[in-house]
């Protein structure tokens, strides 16, 4: 397959970026998208040029490190799929593919397609946990969790922290990311106890970090590699309102 690429190249946060054109002539359709980029980087290196910097690690869709805008869509054309799980069979011979980094204020570009998503870590640090020290735990079966509770908590807990929800949101909101964590714990008896404090603190941190506000366009769930439900956002608001009323 012949593939034309238009890739965002940017030296660092403080310089301007621009699109550059490349062409690959021997792309195999069984290749993953990132292997196609590997191929490009090999060609660039051989010519003595600097390869395109992009984030990736596990390449099996679970670590959440990869993530770029492909033809203007977070993680590319397949719904609920990470960039690394996208294969070139989703494209046709002769296609032009635009590749850009997630362009969100709270994710500054480090280089080319690499962005800094540490804001998401900060939100977790604000309260995304059950405050239990190592060695404090009671016997596991002393806390009963119904099958439904466990399954629905898992649905929310499956988030891989890739940031596609923020990138695809017209408001650049991190509500799905934050809501998923709050919902996970709100659905489990272990997490209920400190739900109020957790929710207030995480939501306020999200605001401080200048993520946008959710307006329920529901785009995030469509691009979320784990298909996390937008209802977790409503659940976050419910927990937030409940916490505010209690105060």
């Amino acid at each position: 397959m012949k593939i034309h690429l238009k890739i965002w190249r940017q030296k660092n946060q403080h310089t301007k970026g621009e699109m550059q054109d490349y062409t690959l002539t021997e792309v195999d359709e069984e290749m993953s998208f990132l292997e196609m980029l590997d191929m490009l980087n090999l060609e660039l290196a051989k010519k003595g040029e600097c390869p395109v910097e992009f984030d990736h690690d596990c390449r099996e869709g679970i670590c959440g490190q990869c993530g770029v805008m492909i033809n203007g869509i977070a993680h590319g054309p397949l719904k609920n799929t990470t960039t690394c799980q996208l294969h070139m069979r989703s494209f046709k011979d002769g296609d032009t593919i635009y590749i850009e980094p997630f362009k969100v204020k709270s994710f500054p570009v480090i280089r080319d397609l690499k962005v800094d998503r540490s804001g998401l870590d900060e939100i977790i640090a604000a309260g995304g946990y059950v405050s239990v020290n190592t060695g404090q735990a009671p016997e596991a079966n002393s806390i009963l969790v119904s099958h439904e509770e466990a399954e629905s908590a898992f649905d929310a807990a499956a988030c891989i922290g890739c940031g596609a929800c923020v990138a695809t949101c017209k408001n650049a909101s991190a509500a799905l990311f934050t809501g998923a964590k709050i919902a996970q714990f709100a659905r489990l008896p272990q997490g209920k106890k400190e739900s109020a404090e957790r929710t207030l603190s995480m939501v306020e941190r999200m605001e401080e970090l200048s993520f946008g506000h959710c307006t329920n366009t529901e785009a995030c769930q469509v691009e979320c590699p784990q298909d996390i439900s937008v209802l977790t956002i409503a659940e976050m608001i419910y927990e937030y309102n409940k916490a505010k009323l209690k105060k």
């Binding site: 238009k6 203007g72 869509i73 362009k103 695809t168 408001n171 200048s210």
Partner: peptide
């Protein structure tokens, strides 16, 4: 707020495929 939270605009932007236009 949304304007502030958004970064540079995309050269190619198809984010709208994931939501309804009126939303």
């Amino acid at each position: 707020k949304a304007k502030k939270a958004n970064g540079l605009s995309y050269v190619k932007d198809n984010r709208n495929r994931a939501s309804k236009w009126y939303a």
